[in-house]
Design a protein around this nucleic acid. Structure first.
Lengths: 199, 199
DNA sequence: AAATACACTTAAACTAGTTTAAGATTAGCG
DNA sequence: CGCTAATCTTAAACTAGTTTAAGTGTATTT
């Protein structure tokens, strides 16, 4: 069994957790998703390009971020194994994206193109349903993030990040975590020092 | 034609903008959505309760907010005419909500209950599709909010709010806007003073 | 094995935004 | 109409987080 096959198996298993797929639907997935290897620091979306793919992460890890006028990066989302990453706004509007998506580790992904996903939606009811659920989950995650950001201090946000994403917190450099939390790496360093001294 | 009928007409018109509804589907909407009047300061969701309805705002305006340990309110979302408001996380999990939804103006809404929405999803393909699109739009709105919050100063956020929601910015008290922007009313007042003096 | 880029820390000066408290203005209600 | 409660403003003292800059440690590439 080659690498592409095992990737697809992983994706099918993922979908089956929501709503078991028929053989035909599994065939469609195999036909419409394409495997791709992405090296560390390689982009799957750059500012100004249209986001053409909906991406499932088989292994590795990605960050999605914006760059402000002063050139600073601001991480919005990470995605590791069994998660999805896409710039929805650009993907559906087919307008140039404001954001970047970059591999923070060498990764393996499965991608579907916009027209092919529309084909799935139109011809296989279940995917309209499945992707609604996926996006609802992403929405809830994002809403929690807004809440945190609005009401927590830097230290509280960091502690919550450690609790919510213990896995990511070990894999990612602190600079990336600081950027996600909306603080400077220097301040994160200060927070970490404070936490160690207090226990 | 009574008030309930015109409300339903407004909702049907709303859906028809996405994807024209059949007579049967229109009938289902009429059957499953319930009209409700909500007075200013009345809650349609309180912390600790399960969010049982997906709510369409026919007229008026709502805020959704969290209350932190120190008792301060933090607005996450507003919804006025032709918009939806629901605490998705509680609605789908059927677990108690962390958030409040309160009318900031006397309002008229149409509500559908969780099992009835599932009925629509299961028996009328189109609604799985329509609600996917609605939630995608909400997601994009929220993502922009995260971006803003992470990279803009208080003044920049306020200017963007005025630009994005000229309508809301006239209707809502500044305290509510400050709470949405994540700043104190006092600081918003300072910002406004600065803006006036500089032009 | 050296070279170089990247990640993490420290610290001092600084600034955006908070807190507290008081007074001024506006809006809803009986 | 007049009263009360909510909203908005001002200002001074304060604090959480930034900026700049320098130094240390650790991976990757050659």
């Amino acid at each position: 069994m080659n690498s592409e096959n095992t990737s697809i198996q992983k994706l099918i298993k993922y979908f089956n957790n929501y709503f078991p797929l028929s053989n035909e639907e599994q065939g469609e997935i195999q036909r419409l998703f394409t495997e791709r290897r992405v090296k560390r620091r390689q982009f799957i979306l750059q500012q100004g390009d249209v986001c053409r793919h909906f991406t499932f992460v088989v292994s590795g890890c990605f960050k999605m971020y914006a760059v402000d006028k002063s050139g600073k990066e601001h991480n919005i989302q990470f995605a590791a194994e069994n998660d999805w990453i896409t710039e929805l706004s650009s993907f559906y509007s087919e307008k140039p994206s404001q954001l970047y998506i970059e591999a923070v580790e060498s990764s393996l992904v499965l991608q579907i193109k916009h027209p092919d996903l529309l084909h799935l939606y139109t011809n296989h009811h279940k995917f309209d349903h499945n992707f609604r659920v996926i996006i609802e989950q992403k929405f809830i995650e994002l809403q929690n993030r807004v809440l945190q950001h609005i009401s927590l201090t830097g230290e509280e946000s960091y502690l919550l990040f450690l609790e919510l994403f213990p896995n990511l917190s070990k894999r990612l450099p602190n600079t990336e975590i600081a950027s996600y939390l909306g603080i400077t790496p220097e301040f994160l360093s200060k927070i970490r020092k404070g936490l160690i001294h207090r226990r």
